[in-house]
Structures are given as structure tokens and as C-alpha cells.
Simulated assay, not measured.
Amino acid sequence: MAQSYEARMLRVIDHIHHAPVDQLSLDDLADVAAMSRFHFHRVFVALRGETAAQAVRRIRLFQAAAQLVQSDSSIEAISARSGYANVPAFARAFRAQYGLPPGRFREQGLLRPMPATLKKGETKMFNVEIKDLPNRRLASLPHKGDYNSIGHAFERIAMICSTRGLWPQVQGMLGIYYDDPDAVAAEDLRSAAAVIVQPDTPVEDPLTESAVQGGRSAVLTFKGPYAGLREAYLYLYGDWLAQSGAEPRDEPPYEVYLNDPSDTAPEDLLTEICVPLK
């Protein structure tokens, strides 16, 4: 089944090399990979060691370098084909990549083969289990912005639960993360802080009633400070998912927090990263 992910990622690389620049959005690439938009980019980053945007920029700039040396096309035309709105923007990106502005690069006439970008270093291994999880009813607050600041939303939920006497009906805390922080600007990231509540628990403003569907799911249990979760995601979406052949559902990953950071040492925090599977 690992071949399935290999074939999908090879299709994406081929598409980046050959498709028009207006067909290289994350949605386009997810479609080429035949993967959910919630999960495609996390898989790509975990396997490639670079974001899809970085891969597109690197490959298109190499193609521009080849056109500068091997064709008579104007810099303006090459800039447009490379997806840049104007020549100055193209020139800045090209110089950052090759150390020379396009005109001087063309004058030198030197073009070296583009080296493959390799994923560097070893990914730490984690234990992942496939479990049949329950459906969970949630009382949640939306959060927009850096995932590191979602604590504000959790603090608000905690205060609401205290003032309304809801704690006896709370069965845990959960965070839903809709976007990949490697693909979306920090200020635009969408997430939700939530408590898991019983079926008869009243959910009133500003809380919103929602749910996560259970069923077959990949569950990675991470022990340690929340700052280390990114490494766990890279392993789950890269090494484990590709080798398992499991197929994520079109639903976002979520985290279940098994203990409380207010009375637990950072190195003893336990977090379940859950990826719904087909």
C-alpha cells in the first residue's frame, strides 16, 4: 500500500513540473494526489521536507533558469510563465535562489542540473495504533490565528465551564486543527478549542455545539511538551501513513489532551493525535 502514496506524490511532482502556473494551488495539488485537503499538505511536507509552495517555487525557478540560458524568450515572458506578477518580484525570487539577477545569469550562460531536495535527518519514531474511537459531542469555541495562541480559547472555555457548573459533565478537552501551519499563514490558521460533553449537557452561547465522528482512526500518543507535537505529526503523516497505506477521511485531525498542563509537568503531558481513517 505504500506504493499508493508513492504514486500519488510522483503525480504531484510531475504536475508541478508540467502544469500551467494557474493549476498549482494547494487544492489543485490535493486533487492530483486524490487526497483530502485536510491531509494532503501534511503528507507532502512529511515526505518531502519542504512545503508544496517551496517545491513549486524551486522547480519553476529552475525552469526559468533553463529558459534564460536555452531560449531567446524575454525576461518579462519568462517571469509571467513562472507565475510572477511582475519582473521585479521575479528578479528578487530568482536572485534569492541563484545569487544573480536574471539578466546577469543569462549573460553567464551557466546552467547546472537541479539537485533533488532531500529530506534531511532521521524522523523520530512514535507508536501509532489504529483504534475504533467513539463519537464525541463537543462544546467548542473557534480560534483563528497562530495555533500556539489557542490557549486563550481554552482558558475561556474553562472559565465558562466553571461559572456554569459544567465540569461534572465534561469528559475531556480536545483541539481541532483545520489547516496545516506549513501551508497557511499563522494569522489565517483555523482551529477550535473544545470540551467533550455528555449528550444532555446544555451548550449555549458563546459555546457552539459540534462533534467529531469516531470510527477507525490512527492514534499517536505523544508524551512531552506541546512544542514537540510537530515532530510527532511529521512521523504520523510521513513515515507511518505512507508505510501503512491507510487512507485519511475528509475530516481534520484533532488532539485529545489526556492530562492538565496546570498540574502536570511538561515532560509528562499526554496528547493523542487522532487522524480519522476510511
Score class of each variant (00 low, 15 high):
Gln3Glu: 15
Gln3Lys: 12
Ser4Lys: 11
Met9Lys: 04
Met9Ser: 11
Arg11Pro: 05
Asp22Arg: 11
Gln23Glu: 14
Leu24Cys: 04
Asp28Gly: 05
Leu29Ile: 09
Met35Gln: 12
Met35Ser: 11
Phe38Pro: 02
Phe38Val: 03
His41Tyr: 05
His41Val: 02
Gly49Val: 04
Ala52Leu: 10
Ala53Phe: 09
Ala53Val: 02
Phe62Glu: 13
Ala64Val: 04
Gln67Ile: 00
Gln70Arg: 12
Ser73Asn: 08
Glu76Ser: 13
Ala77Asn: 14
Ile78Leu: 04
Arg81Leu: 10
Ser82Asn: 01
Pro88Ile: 07
Arg92Gly: 11
Gln97Asn: 08
Pro101Phe: 00
Pro102His: 02
Arg104Ser: 12
Arg106Leu: 08
Leu110His: 15
Met114Ser: 11
Pro115Ser: 11
Pro115Thr: 13
Pro115Phe: 03
Ala116Gln: 15
Glu122Lys: 15
Thr123Trp: 02
Lys124Asn: 05
Phe126Thr: 04
Glu129Thr: 13
Glu129Ile: 10
Ile130Leu: 09
Lys131Phe: 03
Arg137Leu: 15
Leu138Trp: 11
Ser140Gln: 13
His143Asn: 06
Gly145Glu: 02
Asp146Arg: 11
Gly151Gln: 11
Ile157Trp: 04
Ile160Leu: 15
Ile160Val: 14
Thr163Cys: 04
Leu166Asn: 05
Trp167Gly: 03
Met173Pro: 00
Tyr178Asp: 09
Asp179Met: 01
Asp179Asn: 11
Gln198Glu: 15
Pro199Ser: 08
Glu209Pro: 09
Ala211Ser: 14
Val212Tyr: 09
Gly214Ala: 10
Arg216Ser: 08
Ala218Thr: 02
Lys223Gly: 08
Gly228His: 09
Glu231Thr: 14
Leu234Trp: 01
Tyr235Cys: 07
Leu236Tyr: 07
Leu236His: 07
Tyr237His: 07
Asp239Cys: 03
Gln243Phe: 06
Gly245Gln: 05
Pro248Ser: 10
Arg249Phe: 04
Asp250Glu: 15
Pro252Thr: 07
Asn259Gln: 10
Asp263Pro: 00
Thr264His: 07
Leu270Ile: 14
Thr271Ala: 00
Thr271Asp: 01
Leu277Asn: 00
Lys278Tyr: 12
